[in-house]
Design a binder for these strands. Structure first.
Length: 609
RNA sequence: CGGGGCGUAGCGCAGCUUGGUAGCGCGGAUGCUUUGGGAGCAUUAGGUCGCAGGUUCGAAUCCUGUCGCCCCGACCA
């Protein structure tokens, strides 16, 4: 391809709309253009990158025996009602774009394809003899993100590879899950990305085991916690750890564990309380009130007790709530702090926020309009294991000292509800402490189990002659996100440094001065030879000054540059590697034998081949 | 939705406080010079100042409303 014909429009200034390096660079280098928030045009260079990434994905999926397919993006609501996800995905903060056709039928624009594929599988897969099957597709997905941002990182329209596997039993599912784990590691390595596999929360997709693949980068939206020995890595949403030990409260239990009142005027925060009376935050039990709203109308107040120095992990709490009520009340639609406005709306008295204790009486909810009249009570292990503690007295400006769980007459269900923090000790080896890194989630694999196949009555005939729902797995890769993550991980002050395996072109031939016949002719000849050797090659034939062409070639990130300049008369050219900027002069005649083997090696990315 | 910010030429911005009829850099076009690190000179095209009201002799500038976009939080490949 000739650069003069490439519709290349590069920008000298950073566009105001972009914040992170990869987003700025993709805009500046002419890879993408924004059409609306979260909606981008992939310009010709970007499309080549996306096709290369897709090709790597395809090859590795095919290698595991997966079948490529292409499923409808326009999906009937009825299908989603059968799985029970229509309401959760369209109401409230649902992310599915949905619409009504002229017949008044409800349709959704596919954010994911579990429903469609499960319906198909139920139709086509009749016998255990046909299993296992793994189907995948690469296509545009639609999600009405609350806040699209960072270019392709979180778009409302994006390219995703999604795969769905069907199995006769759980062992077969685990086998495919492991095969996908391996395929994913190869895909990211081949694309030249340093990625970390971490334990993850299953989120709205549901299911049991799940693992995310994170490209480590400063701009990552996720916080991941890893142990230095590499044995443990998890998304913070999911991470577990050992909390620091608590210091026993001096004085022990007071008033038979009911605690002695302590005047604590305006000391509404743990910090103020501790500072005023010489307590440590780990000696205090703090109480958080929330309200959980479920699909079928249930609004359940929740009282969570945590040790004062710990943070609530809302994902863990949401999972506990979904596990308890999902069957009977549908999806958890919202989980929000119980607020003063909420109390007023319910016609209830205001509560002494800042002075709440776990013994808060259910009577404060009596007469509520929508809410259930009793709290669902949980406590974190760290709070449960305190022998004696300080807590709110449930009246303004008063706390209790020397309280015990028995003394307060409380014994709420004990769960892991705390957020693991960097510096915490690890479960597998308390000598290891968690380290924090930021990551961009580029892949996620799930063992779904039988959630969808049961809901949608997708069954197969077993060897014994019975009928059972399929065991299912699903496996996603954000293809467009991966491409941008590659830029985030591979750039410098001059622009993008594409890993060669996914670069739009592998080599750019730059005649320093196209007005010079010798330079132009030699450049043309090398361009032809490289093309004939199967190399993706660009020729910068624009009548620009050399400096402009060098800058552009670096900005757009072509891995190799062949400069045909002053040396052209003697048949000499300069070979420059984008990554690192190393350059060498060599005879034009030996360019192919020097360069082609290196390109072939780099096409394998970080992997051995 | 809550909190912050911004809408002026294709892109990046100034002008607004203190109203006087729109400017700078980059980019585009033409010509000459230059030619290995985003060239110089000259000429030139391009803007209902987001939109709608209002105040005023006069509004990019002041007032009211409205729309859009960006950033921080909840969502996720």
């Amino acid at each position: 391809m000739r650069v003069s014909r490439l519709m290349l429009v590069t920008l000298r200034d950073d566009p105001a709309e972009a914040e992170i390096p990869s987003h700025k660079l993709l805009l500046r280098a002419g890879y993408i253009r924004r059409l609306a928030p979260g909606i981008y045009a992939y310009l010709p260079l970007m499309w080549r990158v996306l096709r290369k990434v897709s090709q790597v994905v395809r090859e590795e999926m095919e290698r595991t025996g997966a079948l490529e397919t292409l499923l409808p993006q326009l999906q009937p609501a009825e299908l989603w009602q059968r799985s029970g996800r229509w309401a959760g995905y369209t109401d409230g903060e649902g992310i599915m774009f949905h619409l009504e056709d002229r017949q008044g039928r409800q349709l959704g624009l596919g954010p994911t394809h579990e429903e469609v594929i499960t319906a198909l599988a139920g139709d086509l897969l009749r016998s255990y003899r046909q299993l296992p099957v793994n189907l995948y597709q690469i296509q545009t997905k639609f999600r009405d993100e609350i806040r699209p941002r960072f270019g392709l990182m979180r778009g409302r329209e994006f390219i995703m590879k999604d795969a769905y596997s069907f199995h006769a039993d759980e062992d077969s599912l685990r086998e495919t899950y492991a095969a996908m784990d391996g395929a994913y590691r190869r895909i990211f390595a081949r694309c030249g990305l340093r990625a970390v596999a971490v334990e993850a929360d299953s989120g709205a997709i549901g299911g049991s085991a799940s693992q995310e693949f994170m490209v480590t980068a400063e701009a990552g939206e996720d916080l991941i916690l890893t142990s230095p020995d590499g044995q443990y890595a998890a998304n913070q949403e999911r991470a577990v750890s050992l909390a620091p030990a608590a210091t026993p409260l001096a004085g022990g239990a007071l008033a038979d564990g009911q605690g002695e009142p302590l005047s604590t005027p305006r000391q509404t925060s743990i910090e103020a309380l501790s500072a005023a009376h010489g307590f440590l935050p780990c000696q205090v039990v703090k109480v958080l009130l929330l309200v959980a709203r479920f699909e079928q109308g249930l609004e359940q107040p929740v009282l969570v007790s945590l040790r004062g120095d710990q943070q609530l992990n809302e994902v863990k709490l949401a999972n506990a709530l979904a596990a308890r009520f999902g069957q009977t009340h549908g999806a958890l639609l919202a989980l929000a702090p119980l607020s003063e406005e909420g109390l007023i709306r319910e016609g209830l008295q205001c509560l002494p926020f800042g002075f709440l204790g776990p013994q808060l009486d259910d009577r404060v909810l009596a007469g509520a309009r929508q809410w259930q009249p009793t709290f669902l009570r949980f406590r974190d292990h760290t709070a449960a294991s305190l022998e004696t503690f300080v807590c709110g007295a449930n009246s303004p400006d008063e706390h209790l000292v020397g309280a015990t769980w028995a003394g307060l007459g409380q014994n709420p269900e004990t769960l892991d509800l705390r957020s693991a923090q960097p510096g915490d000790r690890c479960h597998h080896d308390p000598a290891q402490t968690l380290e924090a890194r930021r990551g961009i989630e580029v892949g996620h694999i799930f063992q779904l189990g039988r959630k969808y196949s049961t809901a949608m009555e997708a069954r197969f005939a077993t060897e014994a002659g019975g009928e059972e729902p399929f065991w299912m797995g699903c496996y996603g890769i954000g293809v467009s996100r991966l491409a941008q993550a590659a830029v985030e991980q591979h750039h410098d002050g001059n622009g993008i440094c594409w890993p060669l395996a996914i670069a739009p072109y592998e080599v750019i031939v730059v005649p320093a001065n196209v007005a010079d016949d010798q330079q132009r002719n030699l450049a043309e000849r090398l361009y032809d030879e490289l093309g004939n050797a199967g190399v993706d090659v660009l020729l910068d034939d624009r009548p620009e000054r050399a400096g402009v062409k060098f800058k552009d070639s670096e900005l757009i990130g072509i891995p190799w540059r062949v400069v045909v300049g002053r040396g052209a008369a003697d048949g000499r050219v300069e070979l420059v590697e984008r990554q690192g900027g190393g350059s060498e002069e060599l005879a034009a005649g030996s360019l192919l034998e020097q360069l082609v083997p290196r390109i072939q090696a780099q096409r394998c990315g970080l992997s051995e081949g």
